[in-house]
Structure formats: C-alpha cells, structure tokens
Design a protein around this nucleic acid. Structure first.
Lengths: 211, 211
DNA sequence: ACCTTTCTCGACACGGTGTCGACAAACTCA
DNA sequence: TGAGTTTGTCGACACCGTGTCGAGAAAGGT
C-alpha cells in the first residue's frame, strides 16, 4: 500500500520516512494537500525533491500512510470498547461515536486531506471506503441485535438496518469534517457528540431512552 | 460571481458561453473536473484554449456557473412547495427531501464536481455554504414550528433545533453524493428517499407517525 | 581494499495554466 | 461606403509543479 523505494529494511532511511510524515502532517494544519508542493515537503524533511521520490511515490502516497495510522487508531479504540449494548444502550452508542469525534478531532488535518483526496485518488478512496464499510458493518450488527432483543423497532417500511447504518455513518463523517474544519453551517465541535448521539438513538430506537 | 471578459452584452458570445457550459456538464459525466483540461473544454466548445479565457477566467468559474443553476433549481422547487407541515408532516418532509434527491440525481455530475471543488476553491465553497445555510434555515424554522405546536418534542438535552437541522442536512448532502456517485458504502439510490425521510422523521418527532 | 546496497541530487522532459499582443470580423455612425 | 470601435480569436511565450534518469557519494559487509 505504502511502498518505498528501499528494498530491505535499514535504519536511517526509516527515520527520514518518518520525518517526511511529520512534516506533512504539520504542513497540512496550515494548507491543503494540493497547496503543498513536493518541493515543500522535501525541504521540510531536509532533503531535495528527487530524494523525496526515494521514500514515497507521490504526495498522495504520503497521505495514504498518514490516513492508515488514523484509521488504525479508530479501529483499535473501537475494538477495545465493550460490545454489550443491552445494559445501557444510550451510553454504549455515545462511547462509540465518541471515538470518532476524538480521533477525527485530533487528526483533523489528515482527515480533511483524506476526504478531499479520495475524490481523485483511487487508493485513498479504497482505504476510506474500506474503513467506512467496517464501521457500517459494526453498526449494522448492533442495530440488528438491538432489534432482535426487542429494544429497537424496524418501523413502518421495515427500514433496512444496513441502509440506516450507512445514513448515520455518512452523517457522522460529514458532520465531523464540517465541524472540525470551521465550515459553515456546522455543528459546534463542543456539542457535536450530543447532537450525533441523539440522532442515532432516535433513528435506531425511536425514543430518547432505550433500555 | 461569474464574470466574463466581454464588456457589454451581445449575442453570439452568449451562445459560445452556453456551449462551453454544455460541453463542461457533458464532460463532467465522464471524468472529474481536474481530469478535464481547459484545452479539452475549449475544443469541446469549438474554440482554442486562449479563447476560452475570453469567456471564463478558469475551470472553476465554469463550475460556478453550472452550480449556480443547480442551486437555483433547488431553491425554485423548494420555494414552490406548500409550507403547511401540520396537515401531513411526514408527506411534507418527504416532498422537501424529494426535491434534493431529484435535482442532485439529475445533476449528479455538477454536484459531485462542486463538492470536490469547494474544498479548494473559496468561491465554490461560499456558494455551496450559502445554499446549505438557506436549507438549514428553512429546516430549522419548520422544526421550531413543529415543536411550538406540540407535534415534536425537544428531547432530554433540549436538542437545539438548528444543530439538529444542520446534522440532517449534512447527512442528506453526503448520503446523496455517495449514492449518486456509486460510492461504497452508499444507500441504494432507488430507496434513498425512504431512508432519509425515515431518519428525519424519527430525529425530529421521535415517532414514525407524526400528526 | 573491494563490492554492493543505500541514499542523494542536478538536470531534464513534460504537461497544464494563464497572459500578451497581433489581428480578424462585425457592428456603428457619418 | 468607409473610418473607428467593439467583439471575438488564437499563436507564441513564460511559468510552475511533477516525475524520471543517471551519475555518484556514503555506509556496511566480507
């Protein structure tokens, strides 16, 4: 996925690679990826432009490496959450959504760049889609389980659990990127968890207080 | 907003301008805006590249003109809708959301290009934000009115009507672009109106059958 | 000391953008 | 009808960012 020009693993090369990634994430807090030239990225890492290509094959390749880490962090933290929703459904959903809020907040620059890049770069698109799909799968499973135990209704049109999960996950994606990039209109970053959690609960359970 | 090089209004120039717009929307169904060169756009309209600059100052300027029309169509159609939600709230919301589904479906190429371009172009960003703001305002007003007449609750945390409206509108934006651009995961375009309408109703009324 | 692998960069070719200035075509008013 | 103005057109140029190639320097292994 993120291939470098080096053939075997050595030491000082990995440091350079890391330096480029750090320089990139730092630059991304200032400007968007296409405002950053490879020249800039290379200079920021103390190397020349051609040397940059020894470590990464393009700017997007750098972003891909950064995005990979961010997604990894979400996966890890979501995976560490208790999977028992029956005890306190509202809190459980809130915690799950909270992971996204925190990680996307901490890495807002990378998230924003990824959301922009996926529209033109197939690899970024694929990586993002894969992550979204995994989160949708997770949400769908929980919704199905909650319906099975009678805590959540299906609704008049037998609202498909997966399509509901997709809608809610896409809402989160968009609402979070809007909030953390100062878009307008956007939800206040401080209150976004409350708003999103409320919509999820209502959309899934058709009540504010599921049991 | 969309300024052309011509100083006064004449005839055959406007036709050329229109030809460029038509060529652009047609090309956009095939590839993304940054895969389209100005050369291509010009050739498609039967002129040379420098001549293109007589009519538009950039590719984004062309997109801005196209987006302006699409937004205008939404505004017109939303404005023509009956504003009486009390009689049949579910149908009224469904019709409102239906306008977006139809227009974004008909002009999916322009919508997708605009969503991509707003991330780098301030003018596109501003135009899109303005439109979103107006739709959020509209939704907020209706939610407030529905709460006032007792049809919709506020919820435990006094869920702010505007923030709720923002979340729902952003969900629509993202879900529609995902659906009409073949993203995955995405909601099936044929059923997206049902899904979105269901989430809106539940999020606003906390029931599937408001009265 | 030699050889190989790792790493570096100057120099080049390329493709897209935007501008300038010459000029053609059409319309205007005497 | 013909001189002047506005409208429209484009060849040629300069510029900038990308990506590649090939020469070579440093570092490690034997």
């Amino acid at each position: 996925m993120v291939q470098r020009g080096r053939r075997t693993t050595r030491v000082s090369g990995d440091e350079r690679q890391e330096t480029i990634l750090v320089a990139a994430e730092s630059l991304l807090t200032t400007k968007s990826l296409d405002e950053i030239s490879i020249e800039e990225l290379a200079t920021g890492a103390g190397i020349s432009r051609p040397t940059f290509y020894f470590y990464f094959s393009s700017k997007d390749d750098v972003l891909l490496a950064l995005l990979d880490r961010v997604i990894g962090e979400v996966e890890r933290r979501v995976g560490a959450l208790p999977r028992d929703f029956a005890a306190a459904p509202a809190d459980a959903w809130r915690e799950s959504i909270g992971v996204f809020v925190e990680v996307f907040s901490d890495h807002r620059a990378v998230s924003a760049a990824a959301v922009a890049a996926r529209l033109r770069n197939p690899e970024v698109h694929a990586l993002w889609s894969k992550a979204m799909a995994s989160w949708v799968d997770y949400s769908t499973e929980v919704i199905v389980a909650e319906r099975a135990r009678g805590a959540a209704p299906t609704g008049p049109q037998d609202l498909d659990a997966r399509e509901l999960a997709i809608a809610l996950n896409l809402m989160n994606e968009r609402a979070l990127t809007a909030a953390f990039n100062g878009d307008s209109p956007a939800i206040d970053p401080g209150g976004i968890l409350d708003v999103l959690a409320a919509v999820w609960l209502r959309a899934i359970y058709v009540t504010d207080t599921p049991s």
